[in-house]
Design a binder for these strands. Structure first.
Length: 570
RNA sequence: CGGGGCAUGGCGCAGUCUGGUAGCGCAUCUGCUUUGGGAGCAGAGGGUCGCAGGUUCGAAUCCUGCUGCCCCGACCA
């Protein structure tokens, strides 16, 4: 492609709205343009990469035996009422009515539509298992869209749904998708991890996220250095401390702590480590009232874990200031588990504390030397806290570290939630009607592009992984207006490369070299060839990879062979 | 949803407090010069100052309402 004939528009300055690197660079390089909050146009140039990502996904889905379909964005409300999600889904589901006052939604996902299709089309177990996928536009009315296409409201998703006669077949289909996802993200040149996203509770329901590792990621993920254990922080189990609780050594005492409300303040005021303090959080109970959750001072509450504890309201809500005062007799900051008039649940680590410090439920007062079983009843114990780096792995091998990730894929064994609700059945070998077992498998296609940039950029611009680069090679002729030789050589190379099937961008603008180099680096095209008088005098061209810090010369006569060798290794 | 902020040419901003008919940089167009790391000079085009009311001789500026957008939001007990 010739730059002067291509609709591409770079920006030297960054629009004020862009917070993270990928968003900034996507705007500056002209991949996307904003239309409304969380809604973006993909430009001709941006679409080159988006299509490459889609092509890799398509190839691997097909290779895994899935079949492509294309379902509507607009879906009738009846299907959502049938599955029960009309009431469950909440304000993220965009609802509207047509001219005849019939209710519709814009699909945030397509379980209902595919289940409806399958229940009509499939009659026999002989037609199973089967996996349908699509690459299609979704809409979720996010509370707070941000970071460009990273968390947009409208976005492109690859969603797939598999149907099986039983759980064993589902497990096989799930495994196939797991392998396909691993191949896709590997082919795209991304550094990623698959991560456990569910503790694997009842029903053997299993779920894994595919996380692209990047410091700006919205998710925290946890790894063991001892084996392959990896999980979302929300799900990673914190084991009970190996050492048993120490013996009580001190008497419980009341200490005046005027206006000392936080753990940090307590550690400074009483000169005790945070690991010797207990913090008590009052949350709303499932049946009204409040429940006390007790954590060690240096630990953070994990909301996902907490709301799974029986008696705790879902979703987790902190108790109001009035409720705290009613239950404890003191304001937040001086609440403790001793003498509290509500159920007390201690985190595993908090439950092994001895001689600990906590709020006294009396204004401006804390207690020291507190011991479970002596000064207050033994608490109920649960895993309530977030993992911290250095914790032992729940797999039993190694210790855990924490990294940030961007969730680009999620695979899930659904079971019969939708097929049950919607009557999706086939006849089995014995002519009995059997409800199908389902899996679903998503990839945020537009998010993958942002994640790739987040993981591959420097201060000058994007550094595309080769398999998803919009162009493979950029040709930069120097002083094209004056030098006929440079112009003709660049034209000839462009034709030669293009005929050879390479994806080449020829920067044929009459611009100064600095401007061309800066744009080439912003766009992130992996291989750059400079054509200049200086080199041509010696029969040379100049090559530089986007990641390299220095250029190398190579013979003009050998150009195609040279660049092909670089593409193969690059 | 709660809190805060912003809305002026394609992008980034000043002007608003103290009302007098809109300006700077980048980008765009023309000409000349320049050409190995975002050139220089000269000229040009482009804005009903988010929308609707109001106050005033006069409103980007003051008042009211609306809309859009951005940022933050249990982690404290």
């Amino acid at each position: 492609m010739r730059w002067t004939r291509y609709p591409i528009n770079t920006m030297k300055e960054t629009p004020a709205e862009a917070e993270i690197a990928s968003h900034r660079l996507m705007l500056r390089a002209g991949l996307i343009r904003r239309l409304a909050a969380g809604i973006y146009t993909w430009t001709t140039f941006g679409l080159l990469t988006l299509r490459k990502v889609e092509a890799i996904i398509r190839e691997e889905m097909n290779r895994a035996g899935a079949f492509e379909v294309l379902m509507p964005a607009v879906q009738p409300a009846e299907l959502w009422q049938e599955s029960g999600r009309w009431d469950e889904y909440g304000p993220e589901l965009l609802r509207f009515t047509d001219r005849g006052d019939r209710a519709f939604v814009i699909g945030p996902t397509h379980e209902e539509v595919i289940t409806d299709l399958v229940r009509r089309e499939l009659q026999s177990y002989r037609q199973l298992p089967v996996n349908f996928y699509q690459i299609q536009t979704k809409f979720r009315d996010e509370i707070r869209p941000r970071f460009g296409v990273m968390r947009g409201r409208e976005f492109i998703m690859k969603d797939a749904y598999s149907f099986h006669i039983d759980e064993a077949s589902l497990a096989q289909g799930y495994e196939l998708m797991r392998e396909a996802y691993t191949r896709m993200f590997t082919r795209m040149g991304l550094t990623f991890r698959s991560v456990r996203a569910d503790s694997g509770a009842i029903g053997g329901s299993t779920s894994e996220e595919f996380q692209v590792l990047a410091d700006s990621g919205e998710d925290a993920i946890v790894f063991s250095d001892g084996d392959g254990y990896a999980a979302n922080l929300e799900m990673a189990e914190a084991l009970a401390p190996a050492a048993p609780r120490g013996a009580a050594g001190a008497a419980m005492q009341s200490v005046a702590t005027p206006n000392v409300r936080t753990i940090t303040a307590i550690t400074e005021f009483l000169k005790v480590p945070a690991t010797q303090c207990a913090k008590t959080l009052l949350v709303e109970g499932a049946a009204g009232g409040v429940v006390a959750l007790v954590l060690r001072g240096d630990h953070e509450l994990n909301a996902v874990k907490a709301q799974k504890v029986p008696g705790v309201a879902t979703p987790l809500r902190m108790a109001s200031a009035e409720a705290v005062l009613a239950a404890s007799g003191a304001e937040p900051g001086f609440v403790g588990p001793v003498g509290l008039r509500c159920p007390v649940i201690a985190d595993r680590s908090a439950a092994t504390l001895a001689d600990f410090v906590c709020g006294a439920n009396v204004p401006d007062t804390h207690l020291t030397g507190v011991n479970w079983g002596r000064d207050l009843p033994e608490p109920a114990v649960a895993d309530l806290r977030n993992i911290v780096a250095g914790d032992p792995s729940p797999s039993g091998k190694g210790t855990l570290s924490i990294a940030r990730g961007i969730e680009v894929g999620h695979i899930f064994q659904l079971g019969r939630k939708y097929s049950d609700a919607m009557g999706c059945t086939v006849l089995d070998e014995e002519s009995r009607s059997t409800t199908l077992c389902m899996g679903c498998y998503g990839i945020g296609v537009t998010r993958v592009v942002a994640a790739a940039i987040e993981q591959n950029h420097d201060e000058r611009g994007i550094i595309w992984p080769e398999p998803i680069a919009p162009f493979q090679v950029v040709l930069v002729p120097i002083n094209i207006a004056k030098s006929q030789r440079v112009r003709e050589t660049a034209d000839r190379l462009y034709d030669e490369f293009t005929r050879a099937g390479l994806e080449v961008l020829l920067d044929d603008r009459d611009a100064r070299p600095g401007a061309k180099f800066a744009d080439a680096e912003l766009l992130g095209i992996p291989h750059r060839i400079v054509v200049g008088e200086r080199g041509l005098e010696a029969g040379k061209l100049e090559y530089r990879h986007r990641r390299a810090t220095a250029s190398e010369d190579f013979p003009l006569d050998d150009a195609l062979r040279f660049i092909r060798a670089r593409l193969a290794t690059g």
